[in-house]
C-alpha cells in the first residue's frame, strides 16, 4: 500500500510546490508573493513529513518544526513590513 501511495503523494506535493513558485514569480502584488512563499514553506513541511515516512527516520520531524517556525515568523515579518514600511516599530 505504502509503496504505491507514497510516490503519488510526493509527486502531488512537488507539483504543488511548482505551482507556488509560479505564483511567486508572476505576482502580481507583493502580498501575492508573500502568500506564495508561505504556502511554499508549508508544502515543504508536507514534503518533509512524507520523507519522514518514506525513510523511516525521526530526524526529519525536527526539520519540519524549524521550517514551520521560520516560515511563520518570516511571513509575519514581511506582512508587517508592508503594513508599516518597517519591521520593528
Amino acid at each position: 500500500m505504502l509503496t504505491l501511495t507514497l510516490p503519488i503523494a510526493i509527486g502531488a506535493v512537488l507539483l504543488a510546490m511548482a505551482l507556488n513558485l509560479w505564483r511567486m514569480a508572476i505576482g502580481p502584488t507583493r502580498p501575492d508573493r508573500i502568500l506564495a512563499l508561505d504556502t511554499l514553506s508549508i508544502n515543504t513541511i508536507a514534503l518533509v513529513m512524507l520523507l519522514d515516512i518514506a525513510l523511516g527516520s525521526v530526524v526529519y520531524l525536527e526539520a519540519a518544526l524549524i521550517l514551520a517556525a521560520m516560515g511563520f515568523v518570516g511571513t509575519v515579518a514581511l506582512c508587517k513590513f508592508i503594513l508599516s514600511g518597517d519591521i520593528i516599530e
Partner: peptide, 23 residues
C-alpha cells in the same frame, strides 16, 4: 496500512488543491 495510505492520498490531494487555488 490502508488508513495511512488513504490519509497520504487525501492529504496530498488537499495540499495540491490549495496550491491550484493559489495559482
Amino acid at each position: 496500512e490502508i488508513l495511512i495510505g488513504l490519509l497520504l492520498l487525501g492529504g496530498a490531494a488537499f495540499v495540491l488543491l490549495g496550491s491550484i487555488g493559489l495559482a
